[in-house]
Design a protein around this nucleic acid. Structure first.
Lengths: 135, 135
DNA sequence: AACTTAAATGAGAATCATTTGCATCTGGGC
DNA sequence: GCCCAGATGCAAATGATTCTCATTTAAGTT
């Protein structure tokens, strides 16, 4: 989550990348869209184009710094990839996202993939519903 | 999966709707995009516009005839909603999709939602990886 | 510190999936 | 067969994301 992670990933340490990384770090709890990141940059008077935000986020994804999610069909959201994997509870009304990890489910998934002769590379479990506030 | 299901859903029984329902039924194993459905209609010399395909699929989704998935970020796919819920194994290389149901996971999900005070309305578990053929 | 070059960026055009406005058409009740 | 709300076709509009290309810059080299 710093300049080093960029260097390690073989990416030049540029203003846009550093700023975007900062923004993502400052918003770990949320899942941000490219547009969200762009707007945040604007409020910080940073001159970064939307195209660059998209390019940087895509690069971050390919080097494993962030993870892309397609909860909604019309735009992707990103989150810093911390060490531990986790799944999501998504409120269909307010969009709030809560994370969780469940060992039982993790294990079953591996068994299922193995049974189907799939070499699992990733998995995503999303539980949709109404959060406490929205009920 | 017939004219009755349309009437029951309060939708007029029109040529486009019937044809699209037939196509979805004939391709239960696959998950079709709007474009896929449209192309199939073309091969059958059916005069249905792409806009109508989108409208019909969206209506089918809202009345519960089909389910929409956003496996890939850039286009949605649809599948006839059979009675039983199921999850997916998606091959990241050839796009093949296999379905499965796992009681253990289903139960855990309900417990997790309850613990987080979420009223679960739906859930989706996708395991991504390489299928036997693609490995 | 200046020099060099591949990589990075900005701006705007281009793309692609999906949606919409509107004039026309049609299913199904009378 | 008549009527009309709902359905459709077509083309233009949208919105997210990507691409083109001229310009700038990070970071290694002299």
């Amino acid at each position: 989550m710093n300049d080093e992670s960029l260097r390690e990933a073989g990416l030049k340490v540029t203003i846009p990348r550093v700023k975007i990384l900062e923004i993502l770090t400052a918003n770990k709890q949320r899942h941000m869209s490219a547009e969200d990141v762009y707007k945040t940059l604007l409020t910080q008077r940073e001159e970064v184009s939307l195209a660059t935000v998209y390019r940087v986020l895509t690069q971050f994804e390919s080097v494993g710094i962030v993870m892309r999610h397609n909860f909604e069909g019309d735009h992707a959201v990103f989150e810093l990839k911390e060490n531990e994997h986790h799944d999501h509870l998504v409120c269909v009304r307010c969009g709030k996202v809560e994370e969780f990890v469940d060992e039982t489910i993790e294990k079953r998934q591996q068994q299922i993939a193995k049974q189907a002769n799939f070499k699992m590379t990733d998995h995503a479990l999303n539980i949709y519903g109404l959060c406490g506030t929205c009920q």
